[in-house]
């Protein structure tokens, strides 16, 4: 067999060997190879040690209240007001959607101003005193929902790729 260290895309066999993830046939082939390849033998020895060292690091148990806290967030999210959704969106680094959001809000606001210029009468749906119509609130909420979906669309559409990748036999 060829030395796996000669090409970068075959070095994974040594990683898999150290991880115990090689089948018996290839394990035997590699072990035979390592009898005469000092580099691979040295690689195997060091990688096995690193693998063992990493085993030491066990994480802490997950908090007992994890699920409860999550469901609380889900409930809050379901009843969240539009400004709360905006704060959440910004908080988790989704800055890119701010631009389409700003554009959407601008269009809504411009439409509102245009719609009411010179009429002197409020459109149906205007709330008393607030100056904000239910339609606008609905539209902003819908925009935010759409933005959430857009963000997820990235994941889903990229997932198509991974779905294809997943189906590729190794």
């Amino acid at each position: 067999m060829n030395c796996p260290l000669l090409a970068e895309d075959t070095t994974d066999v040594l990683l898999d060997y150290s991880a115990g993830r090689l089948d018996a046939k290839r394990t035997a082939m590699l072990e035979t190879h390592m009898l005469s390849c000092v580099r691979c033998a040295a690689f195997r020895a060091e990688q096995t040690e690193v693998w063992a060292a990493l085993e030491l690091w066990e994480p802490e148990p997950v908090s007992m209240g994890f699920n409860r806290s999550l469901w609380q967030k889900i409930e809050e999210s379901a009843s969240a007001s539009w400004y709360r959704k905006l704060v959440d969106a910004l908080r988790f680094g989704a800055w890119k959607p701010v631009f389409p959001l700003a554009a959407a809000v601008f269009v809504v606001a411009a439409g509102f101003v245009f719609d009411h210029q010179g009429t002197g009468t409020p459109a149906p749906g205007i709330l008393n005193g607030s100056g904000v119509s239910m339609n606008e609130v609905d539209q902003v909420e819908k925009t935010l929902d759409d933005l959430q979906l857009l963000r997820q669309f990235d994941a889903v559409s990229a997932g198509v790729t991974s779905g294809q990748t997943d189906s590729v036999p190794m």
Binding site: A52, L56, E58
Partner: peptide, 22 residues
């Protein structure tokens, strides 16, 4: 490997995981 390989070589570990490594 350059940072951690010495850890096993140097002395026996006291891990509770019963690591074999391979």
């Amino acid at each position: 490997r350059s940072r951690l390989a010495h850890m096993v070589t140097g002395a026996p570990m006291i891990s509770g995981s019963g690591v074999s490594g391979a």
